[in-house]
Write a protein that binds this DNA or RNA. Structure first.
Lengths: 190, 190
DNA sequence: TGCAAATAACTGACTGGTCATTTATTAATA
DNA sequence: TATTAATAAATGACCAGTCAGTTATTTGCA
């Protein structure tokens, strides 16, 4: 399935060839059909497999953080890892690029991963607000501002990875983001 | 070309059919080939046509703003427009989705549109810093934080447009973003 | 103006190649 | 041997790109 993700990532769903995916794992095309009934099926299995773990990591961080500023710091640490070391950028690109061919997959990805992730962050924000740590009017909106640099970096990684141009220091970017969010939300020692 | 953009947006480059693109403008496939020598050619023409105007608008706003906080307010006004009313979300999706099939197009889009746009923002930030309006250590990084919510919203619009789920109040999102950035950067009346 | 050449714009059937998927054969293993 | 795993060889749908021929528009000229 990692082979399929790479192939879809590099060519897009329509242009990716089943034979090439099979070749990547030293199998023949026919064998691939013993495990996945169709190209569509493979695509769906792929998204299902890689989607859920991402969410769990975020929910972990959000639920373990004793204070919102801690959660921001935690994000600043794991975001660069996630962007440079995991399959997530590829997954995002594939999902986005072929979203219109798989409306049901996109719908479920949104409701089961994205919306839940945003809800986890919004929940933490609301809690921090009632604890008096920060001051937030609309947690749902702020949650989007929190994840925005992550989405930007994921997309950047997926699309501009191979292009020439100034590289970005992701660690500093997310440290800065955490710092700015704290200041904006009125965390004391920011 | 708008027809082609729609078709590529809805199906992806590989799956889009030249005949369908032609049909959208009530022409036959053959006629389309009188104007564009190939599917590739059409794609490239498309990106070229729609890419440049986007940049110009951003550079306008950045160069006309007398202070950084004004620029943020201006962004808060035009960003929702740009996201819901222009071709930009579609363009982003198409470009991202098929980026690996057109590395040269992506490279030039990056260097001629994205990097220049970021540089314009970074320049404004640096100026505001030396004017004493704000305090910025690394304008290039902060520029990314400034555009992050725009990228998030563009992608969201392009990918989740048709899905069911809570809608976002873009106007408020960007007002909030402007407010938070001002606070984070130390603008006085924020 | 009226009419014919000339040119421009357009059409849709056709070709060649490319895969997704299926079917027939062969190896491996218990 | 029987069952499972794997392969290799069809099959057929699909579509980019071509081109011989048609239709619409413009130009030249009486």
């Amino acid at each position: 399935m990692a082979a399929a993700l790479d192939e879809f990532y590099e060519r897009g769903f329509a242009a990716a060839r089943m034979e090439d995916i099979a070749q990547r794992v030293k199998l023949s095309k026919g064998t691939l059909y013993l495990y996945f009934s169709s190209k569509d099926d493979l695509f769906r299995a792929l998204i299902d497999t890689y989607a859920v773990p991402n969410l769990e990591q975020i929910e972990q961080i959000m639920s373990n953080a004793p204070a919102f500023s801690m959660a921001l710091d935690a994000i600043a640490v794991f975001a660069p890892e996630m962007i440079t070391k995991t399959h997530l950028p590829k997954l995002l690109k594939v999902l986005a690029g072929d979203s219109h061919n798989f409306p049901d997959v996109v719908q479920s990805y949104r409701s089961e991963v994205i919306d839940r992730g945003l809800a986890a962050i919004a929940g933490l924000l609301a809690r921090a607000d009632s604890d008096g740590e920060i001051q937030v009017d609309d947690p749902a909106l702020v949650a989007r501002l929190v994840i925005a640099p992550m989405v930007l970096s994921l997309l950047w990684q997926a699309v501009f990875d191979r292009t020439k141009g100034p590289a970005v220091d992701l660690a500093r970017l997310f440290q800065l983001h955490a710092q700015y969010m704290k200041r904006a939300l009125g965390v004391e020692d920011a």
